[in-house]
Nucleic acid binder design. Structure first.
Lengths: 231, 231
DNA sequence: TGTACATCAGTGAACGCGCGTTCACTGATGTAC
DNA sequence: TGTACATCAGTGAACGCGCGTTCACTGATGTAC
C-alpha cells in the first residue's frame, strides 16, 4: 500500500523502461508539436507512445513537468549545436559578415525544423515565469557565444557602440523568428515561408544594423516574394 | 418560456444598459490585462463590473466573443490614431528619418500603456486562427499607412529595394515589441523597460535597415542600460 | 528443483475540480383600457 | 386613477463537460531457502 511511495519519478534504471521513457518523450514531442501543449491531452500522448496514462505519472510529476523535461532535452541539443557551430576556431580568418551570413540560415532552418515544439515552448514561457526563466538561461548561452564571436571582430562594425548594436540586432532577429513561429501556421494556405528568401532578408537587415557592408551576392528578391505574414 | 429567444446578443438600445455594456467591457479589459484571458473567469469580470454572470451571456455569445469585442474596440481606436498620426499632410517637408524617429517612440509608448491587453490579444491570436485573421486585418492597415508614407520618400532610402526594406524593418520592429510584450513581465524585478532607451535603440536599428543616416542627436546609451530581457 | 514472497513495470477505469454556460427566477418600467 | 399584463433588465445557483490526476489492480522478473 505504501508501495507507490518507493517509486521515484523519472530516470528508471532498467534499460527497457529507459527506452520507454525516450519513446514517451518522442511521442509527446510529436503530439505537442502538432496540437500545442494545452490541446494535447495526457491520454493522447500515451496512446501515441503505446503506453498507459498511469505510467505517465510514474515518470512525470505533472503534465507541466513533461514540458520542462522536453525543454531540458532540447536545451542540451541546442547548446551542443551552438558550441560546435560558434566555436571561434572554426571561424579564424573569416569576417563578421561571413559569420552573420552563415549563421542566420542555420538559425532559420532550426526554427523551421522544430517549429511546433518551439511554439509550445514560447507559449508556455509567456505564461509561466519558472518556465520562462529556464528557457531564458539556455537562450543567454547562445546569445553570449554569438556576441563574443562578433565582438572579436569589433573593428569591422561601423557603429559607435558595437556591443549595443550586436545585442539589439540579435534581439530583433530572434524576436522576428519567434513571432513567425508563433503566428505563421503552415496549415493555413497563403504565404508559405520561403526559408531562403527569409534568411536573405534577415541577413541583409542584420548586416545593416551592425554597420557592415552588404556584398551584392545577397540577392534582393522582388518584393512580391517577400514574407509578409505577421501579426 | 420562449422569452429568452427574443433577446439579441449585445447592442442594447436603452441608454442605461448601453452604459452597462461599456462598464463590462472596461472591467473585462482591466481583469484580462491583469490576469490574462484564460485566467480571467467570467465570474471575476462580472464581479469587477458589479454585474451578474447571467447578464454577461445576454451581451456576449461566449467568453471568446468578449475578446473579439475588445479587439474590435481596440482596433477602432488604433486605426483612428494611425490615420491621424500618419496623415501625409502633417509630414510635408519632413524627412523619412524624422518620421521614423518620431513614430517609434509613439509606438513604444502605446505598447507600454496597453501591455496587458495586447498580451492577451497576441496569445489568443497565436492559438485561434479566426482571431488572428481579425487582428491581422487591423495590423495591415497600420503597416500600409506607414509604408506609403515612407515610400513617398523613397529617394532618401539608400537600399536597392526600398519597399522590401521598409517591410522587413517594420516586421522586425513589430516583432520585437510583440516579444517584449509577451515576455517581459513588469511584476518581475530585474531589468525594467526603459522606454526612452528602447525607443532610441530601435530607432537607430530601423534607420540603419532603411539605409538612412543617423544624426548624432540619437544618443547611443552605454550598453549597461540596454534592454536585455528577451526569450 | 520447487515454493513463497518481494519488487519492478505497467494498466485503465474512476474521481474530482474548475469554470463556461444555462435557466428558472425577481423586480422595475411601460402600455392598454 | 387604477388594474392587468407584457416587456425589459438583471440575478446567481445549478449543471455539465473536459481532462489532469489517482489508485486499486495485473503480470513478469528476481531472490531466499
Amino acid at each position: 500500500v505504501i508501495r507507490q511511495r518507493t517509486r521515484w519519478h523519472s530516470t528508471p534504471k532498467q534499460p527497457r523502461s529507459q527506452a520507454r521513457l525516450a519513446r514517451i518523450l518522442d511521442a509527446a514531442e510529436r503530439v505537442i508539436a502538432d496540437k500545442g501543449f494545452e490541446q494535447a491531452t495526457v491520454a493522447q500522448i500515451m496512446a501515441e507512445a503505446k503506453s498507459s496514462v498511469g505510467l505517465f505519472y510514474q515518470r512525470f510529476k505533472t503534465k507541466d513537468d513533461l514540458l520542462r523535461c522536453l525543454l531540458a532535452r532540447f536545451t542540451e541539443e541546442a547548446i551542443a549545436l551552438t558550441d560546435q557551430t560558434l566555436d571561434p576556431h572554426s571561424w579564424t580568418s573569416r569576417t563578421a559578415e561571413d559569420i552573420v551570413a552563415e549563421v542566420i540560415p542555420v538559425l532559420v532552418e532550426l526554427y523551421r525544423a522544430r517549429r511546433g515544439l518551439l511554439r509550445a515552448f514560447l507559449l508556455k514561457a509567456s505564461v509561466d515565469p519558472d518556465f520562462h526563466q529556464q528557457a531564458h538561461i539556455a537562450e543567454q548561452h547562445v546569445a553570449q557565444r554569438l556576441e563574443e564571436l562578433l565582438l572579436s571582430r569589433k573593428r569591422e562594425l561601423r557603429h559607435p557602440d558595437p556591443a549595443a548594436a550586436v545585442r539589439i540586432a540579435y534581439q530583433m532577429l530572434r524576436s522576428t523568428l519567434n513571432v513567425l513561429t508563433l503566428f505563421v501556421t503552415p496549415r493555413r494556405s497563403g504565404y508559405q515561408l520561403d526559408n531562403a528568401a527569409l534568411a536573405d532578408q534577415l541577413t541583409r537587415a542584420v548586416l545593416a544594423m551592425l554597420g557592415l557592408k552588404t556584398r551584392t551576392k545577397h540577392r534582393s528578391r522582388s518584393s512580391k516574394t517577400t514574407q509578409r505574414s505577421t501579426l
